[in-house]
Every structure is written in C-alpha cells, then in structure tokens.
C-alpha cells in the first residue's frame, strides 16, 4: 500500500519525503483546494521545487484541486489544471464534475483521482467517474464501515485510497455545509471549514467562549484546554443534555486495521493534515512508514506497537483517536 502524506508547504513536503512517504499531495495557494488557509500551500515556483525534490527520491506528487468552482471563477480552476499538467504531476485530485471534464478532455494523459470531496461512497458512483473521465483512483469519504469498504473495492473499476490518520470529518466530505451556514464559507466554495477569520475567543468570568460566525461553539471553564472551534466538534444542547452532539474533538487512527485494509485491496492510505506543521508531518509519516514496513514483513502478525500509538496520540486532535466509521459501533 502506498503511503500518501500531506504537504502544506515546502518544508512539510521535504519532511514527508525524507520520512518515507510514497506520495505527497498539495495544493496551489488559493481557493482551488480544500485547505485554503493563510500561509499554506504552494506558489508555482515552490511547487516546481517540491516536485523536483520528491521526484529525485522516487516519491510521487499529487495536486489537489478539489473545491467546486462557480461559473465566475471557473477559468481559475481551468488555469490551475493546466498548471498542474505543465508541472507534470503524477495525478490531479479533483471533485467537481466540470473540473474533471475539463481536465480529462484537455489533458487526456493527466492521471485523475477523485477527491474525497467528490462524495463517492458506492461503486455505482465510482463507475460514473471512471466511465466519464477515466478517473483511475478514488479517495473514499470517511463514512464507510470496514465491510462496506471491502464491498466497494470488490466492485470498483478504479483503485481505492482511504484515510488512515488525522482529523476526522464526521460528515460525508463534499456534502457538508455546516461551515457556510455559520460563516458563509464552506470547504466546497472557499476551501476551508470553520475559517479562522470567523473565530472569536471571548474571555468570560467563568472561562473562555469560542464562537464561529457569532455562534457559541464551545464554553471552556477556566483552566481547561482550549481547542479550535471546528463546528461539528462543538458542545451543544439537545433536549436537556449538553454534549458533543455531533462528534468529540478526536482524530482517526486506522492503524490496527492495516492488515484488513490491505487484504481488502486498498491501494493507498492517506494521512490528513496539510494545515499541520512540518513536525507533525515528519512524526506521522515516520510512524506510518514503520507500520507499513512491518505489515509488509509479516502481515499475519501485524499489531501497532505501543510506541507508535503513543506518538500518534500526542499529535491527535483532542489527544484521542478512533476507528471512526470503519468500526460499526462508532456510527
């Protein structure tokens, strides 16, 4: 299985390459990709340098162009596709039907991957993208159980990549607009969820309130660790209960499922976190490289080592991890 690692900038890319990634993915410095954060992503010259760095070490490079252009911006996405093709990337990761259509007709030799933002959770949807655009690989949304993942792969005409580690989207990617409901900006339109521009941190006599678009997301008593107010990880009230109504601050860690994922035919495991630091990218890539190497040596007896789990726990959101939807009781 290929290890696909995030690169929010050049130092992260180099770290991922140095620590054993088989492929890195990144985006241009604008809203054409779903990690459109200040200071993140690549200007064209840096991208060329990154690609060169990865290539010399036999690491593949994927460009994410996975947001949804509106008619007035379509040209920019088109130019980004052309730029990626000119750079000779190994694959373009896209979600929008129009972008995929443009890329496949203008650059028939440019390999296409369906982004997780494309929301394809079943093999009939995958067949559509395969038949219409010749998409070679799809990244599955983080909503399928292990047995559903297996079933999709058995019937899929294209390769499957799955998320293995990182911040957990609870919703079907590409179909969640909670963020724009509160802020006007969503992953689909703007390339960011719960954008920092709309976050307020307000000290109160009892502690600290975090608000997103004016909506109270979290109320922290004095002394409690303060996390980023991602909308779906907030604390809300339903009937008389106040709790994480949607999800806790938690990260996905599917390492213990590696033998099953491999047996199911998963072609690549993806690490989330282009918005995270090069230190995170280095640590996570190194641990996952070790795990995949151990898996290759002895798939029958593979078990995550306690030190790997501990190291990943340290960099996890809320310092806790879950198997997410792979594990039926989570659902």
């Amino acid at each position: 299985m290929e290890l696909v690692c995030p690169a929010g900038n050049l130092p992260s890319l180099k770290t991922a390459v140095d620590h054993g990634a088989n492929a890195v993915y990144f985006g241009f410095r604008d809203d054409t990709n779903a990690r459109h954060f200040a200071g993140l992503n690549f200007a064209p010259n840096k991208m060329a340098e990154g690609i060169e760095y990865a290539r010399r070490r036999n690491v593949r490079v994927f460009v994410a162009l996975n947001t949804y252009p509106r008619p007035d911006g379509f040209k920019r996405w088109q130019e980004a596709v052309d730029r990626a093709a000119d750079l000779g990337v190994d694959a373009l990761i896209a979600a929008d039907l129009g972008v995929l259509d443009y890329a496949s007709s203008k650059h028939p030799n440019l390999p296409l991957h369906l982004s997780v933002q494309g929301s394809a959770t079943n093999y009939e949807a995958l067949r559509f993208y395969h038949e219409h655009f010749g998409v070679r690989r799809a990244v599955l949304p983080r909503v399928l159980s292990m047995s559903q993942t297996r079933h999709v792969i058995e019937n899929s005409p294209l390769e499957i990549e799955v998320f293995a580690f990182g911040s957990l989207c609870v919703m079907v990617e590409g179909r969640c607009i909670l963020s724009s409901y509160a802020t006007g900006r969503s992953p689909n339109t703007f390339g960011a969820c719960s954008p920092a521009s709309h976050v307020e941190w307000i000290e109160t006599p009892d502690g600290l309130d975090t608000r997103l678009g004016g909506v109270l997301i979290q109320r922290h008593p004095k002394g409690e660790n303060v996390g980023y107010p991602t909308l779906c990880k907030g604390t809300f009230r339903v009937a008389d209960h106040t709790y994480h109504a949607i999800e806790e601050p938690i990260s996905l860690n599917a390492m213990e499922l590696l033998p099953e994922l491999q047996a199911a035919g998963v072609k690549a495991v993806k690490i989330e976190g282009r918005q995270r630091s090069p230190v995170y990218v280095g640590q996570v890539t190194r641990v996952w490289r070790q795990a995949l190497d151990a898996l290759a040596r002895d798939p029958q007896h593979f078990k995550p080592r306690p030190e790997w789990t501990a190291e990943l726990g340290k960099v996890s959101e809320g310092a806790q991890t879950t198997l997410g939807a792979y594990h039926r009781p989570w659902q």
Binding site: V172, C176, C232, I246, A325, W330
Partner: peptide, 15 residues
C-alpha cells in the same frame, strides 16, 4: 429547513 450535512453516524440515535 436547509439540508446541511450527511454522515454515517446517526445523530438522533446518538442523542
């Protein structure tokens, strides 16, 4: 009411 998101998780059962 606006349809905002879909998930594998059932939030009503969770509640």
């Amino acid at each position: 009411r606006l349809p905002l998101a879909y998930s594998a998780r059932c939030f009503t059962a969770r509640a």
